[in-house]
Nucleic acid binder design. Sequence first.
RNA 1: GCUCCCAUAGCUCAGUUGGAUAGAGCACUGGCCUUCUAAGCCAGCGGUCCCAGGUUCGAGUCCUGGUGGGGGCGCCA
Length: 581
Amino acid sequence: MEDVMKLVSELLTEGIRAAAVQAGLVEPDAVAEPFVPTADPRHGDYQCNWAFRLAKIARKAPREVAAILVERLGDNPMIARVELAGPGFVNVFLSDPWLGENLRARSVAADLGVPQVGAGRTMVIDYSSPNIAKRMHVGHLRSTIIGDAITRMYRVLGWKVIADNHIGDWGTQFGKLIVAWERWRDDAAYAEDPVAELQRLYQAFGEAAQEQPDLIERARAETVKLQEGESKSRALWQEFCRVSLEEFDRVYERLGVSFDVVLGESYYRDRLQRLVDDLLERGIAVHDQGAVIVPFDASDGKGLSKNPLLIRKSDGAALYGTTDLATVLHRVETWAPERVLYETDVRQALHFRQVFAASRKLGVEVEFVHIGHGMLKLDGGVASTRAGTVLNLVDVLDTAVAHARTVVDQASAHLSESERAEIAEAVGVGAVKITDLSQNPSTDIHFDWERMLAIEGDTAPYLLYANARCHSIFRKAGLDIETFVPGLPDLTHDTARAVALLVVRTPEVVIAATEAAKPNVLATHVFALARAFASFYSACRVLDEDLSAEVRLGRLSLVYAVARSLSLCLDLLGLVPLRRM
RNA sequence: GCUCCCAUAGCUCAGUUGGAUAGAGCACUGGCCUUCUAAGCCAGCGGUCCCAGGUUCGAGUCCUGGUGGGGGCGCCA
C-alpha cells in the first residue's frame, strides 16, 4: 500500500515482470510489455499482452504462458481479480479498496501526485512567434495554444521550461515597411490602430511593387540602412516593434498565454556574420553559386543531401536559417537544455530538419523536437494574409465570447453582471481553444464557426459545467472545498467506479500526452472524465437526506477528486476552471 | 523530377504506437426536469477503416504497389 501513488500501469507492469522472472521465463533485467487500459470494462480495468511475445521465446502456447503469469500475479492488494482471456490476454480487475485509497491519496496531493519525471531537467520551447507589423489571425492560434498547453504539461511534470517567443522582428520586411510608411501612411489611422495601419502599409507595398519594381530596390536599400544602424531607420523599427508587441501582449493576456523570454530574430543579428564565417572556417559551410550553404549527405538524414541549408545570400545578407542556428547556440549556451521543442506550421518541417542537422555538425547534442501542426483550412482554402482570407484573432475571440454571453444571460440570469461577463469570457475563449486542442496537432483543422460556438457535446462549456457542478454540490452542502478532508470514496455504483478509474488514470495520461506532444490526448481524457461524472451526477445523488453519513461522505469524496482532476486538466489545457456557471 | 503527409459513420474528428465486437461529438429517432445547475442524462440509428497484396497468433495501425488529395524542395519567413 505504500506504493499507492505510483502509476497504476507502472505498478502492475512491475508485478508481471517479477512474475515472469520468478517463473524463469525471462532474464532478471528484462523489460516487460506494459499494462494498458482496456477498451471494454468486461475485460477488466487493465490488460497485459506480454504473454504472446513470451510464448514465442519460450516456445510455448500463449495461453499456457499467460496462465503462469496469472498464477504468480495473485496476492496483490491492488488486484481484485485476474483473468486469463482469449488466446492469452491477462486482464486485471483493480480492487475497490485499493482504487479508493489511490483516489483519496491523489485527490489530496498537489497536482494529483503526478510523478515529477522532469525534475532536474530543462526544456526550451519555441511557439507562437508572430511577425511584427502583422495582426495576429486565426492562423497563429494553433502554435500559440498548442505550445502553451505543452509548456503547462511539461511544467507540471517538474521540468524547468523556458518558453521563448521567437518574434519575427528582423528582416527584409522592414525595408518595405519603411518605404511604405514614408509614402502612404495615414497618421490618423495609425493613431487609432497602429498595427492595422502597418499591415495595410505592408499590403500596399506588395501591390505597388507589382507595377513599380524599383520599389523593391528602395526597400532593399532601407533594409541595409536599418541593418547598418542608421538612426532614423532604427527609430522607426523600434516604434513598429513597440506597437506590435503591445498588441501581441493584449492577445496573450486574453488567451492566458505567457512566455519566459521574448527573444526575437533581431536579438541574434550581431552574431550572424561571425557564425557564417565560423562555419566556413570549420568547413561545415561552403560557398556555392555566390551564396553560402551548409551541405548535407545521406548520413545527415533522408533527402537532405539535395536540400542544403542556405545561410548567406549572394548579396551577403543572412537568412532565417542563420538566425535559427544562432538561436540554437544561444539556447544551448544559456540554459543547457536536454530538449528543444518548436511548435510551428508543418510546412516548416524541412527547414527544421536542416537546422537540426546543421546544429549536429556544430556539436549540439540536445534532443530536438519539431511539432509541425497541420494547416488551418477556411472554407476549403488555406488561411493566408496575402489572399486576405484571414480572420483576425481578436475578432474571433470577441465573437465567441459574445455568443457565450447570450447563452450565459439566458441560462444564468440570476448571476451578477460581472460574473456573467467572467463566465462568458472563460467559455468563449475556452471554446476557441478546445476545438483546437481536442484535435491531433498533426492533422489539418477546419475552421468551423458552428463547431466552435456549440454549447452541447464535447465543448468547452461541457467541461467547465462539469467542474462547476462539483463546486455547486459543495456550496449546497455548506462545505468549503479548500478545507474539505476527503475519506474513502464510495465506489459501489458503476458510474462512481468508472469516474474513479478515470481520475486515477489522469497522471499517466498527462505523461503520455506530454511525451507525444499531443494535448488532444489529455483533452480526450478530460472529456471522458466529464462525461463519466455527468452520468454519475444524474444516477447518484450526493446530498440526499436518505443517504447514510458514510455514503454521503464517500460520494462527496469522489466529487472532490473529480473537481481536483478536472481543475488540473483544464488548467493544463489553458482553460479557466470556473466554479460557477 | 525528388521528398513528406493525409484518406476511418451523413458531417467534424479520436484511435493509448500491433490487441479482443473500430470510438466520440454533431445530425437524426425516442424517452427523462415537484429532489445537488436540462450548457445535463438514458436509449436507438449509423462502418468495404480508399483499393490490392504481404508480414503474424492478431493489422485502422507495420511493409510493398496502386488510386485520390495536400505540403515542401538554395537567395521569403
